[in-house]
Simulated assay, not measured.
Amino acid sequence: MAIAHDPGTAPLGQGFHAIAPGDLAAVVTALEMREMPAALRRPGIEPDVPLQLERWTDCAPERYRLLYKRVGAPWLWWSRLALDDAALMAIIHDPAVELYAVTDRARIEIGMLELDFRTPGACEIAFFGFVPKATGHGFGRWLMRRALQRAWTGAVEKVWVHTCTLDGPGAVAFYVRQGFVPHSRFVEVFRDPRAAGLLGADLGALHPLIVD
């Protein structure tokens, strides 16, 4: 799941818009839910999933980046890789940010979940995903249930998430099935993380690296 900046209020006009060499553009869809899903309000039979959530409360920057890249590099996640240690720790060590690793029975980290409560009354599912070998097994539904159970706490009135066209093609449909409603769309243009040296040039085959 990519993270987008404030899109502002000026819409793009129709037609083609050139992207500079070394840059990328993504169409970002913002989704939200305004009340806890009914399924979370009633007890149910939990699926037998061989996974656990491990809260990381004092995670070193190197450890965070390693998991972030294992999960997000195939989708060109980059925003946290552009931060220095101080800026990264200011976010992930903030008491209003909850960071979890998803581990398997061997205690190997195969996914991540990051919840951001820094905006009063809201929770952003900032990062949500699995390493490639753990996808396609239905684990996403399990993790989303855990995410929403933790997100809908206290005075939260809205849970929201962004996804974009660099993510998996089923991302929007997955979020909608979980109860999120798409409410806006915008275009984000940014320096290609491969051109910036944040990720390897061999990643993101569906989005060719174009430079001068």
Rank of each mutant, 00 (worst) to 15 (best):
M1I: 06
A2D: 15
I3C: 13
A4R: 05
G8Q: 10
T9Q: 09
G15H: 14
F16D: 15
H17D: 11
I19Y: 09
A25Y: 06
V28E: 06
E32H: 15
E32I: 05
M33N: 03
M33P: 06
R34C: 09
M36E: 14
A39D: 15
D48H: 08
P50S: 09
P50H: 06
L51T: 09
Q52H: 04
E54D: 12
R55F: 07
R55H: 11
T57K: 08
D58N: 12
E62N: 12
R65G: 02
K69P: 00
K69I: 01
R70W: 05
G72A: 02
L76C: 11
L76R: 03
S79D: 15
L81W: 04
L83N: 11
D84Y: 03
D85E: 14
L88Q: 13
A90L: 02
I92F: 01
E98G: 00
L99T: 09
Y100S: 05
Y100V: 04
R107A: 05
P120K: 04
P120M: 05
G121M: 07
A122F: 07
E124V: 00
E124W: 09
F127R: 09
G129L: 00
V131R: 03
K133R: 14
T135S: 08
F139S: 08
R146Q: 14
A151W: 05
T153E: 14
A155F: 10
E157V: 00
E157M: 10
K158S: 05
A171D: 08
A171S: 12
F174V: 08
V176E: 15
S184L: 03
S184R: 13
R194V: 03
L198R: 04
G204I: 06
H207R: 13
P208S: 03
D212R: 09
D212V: 04
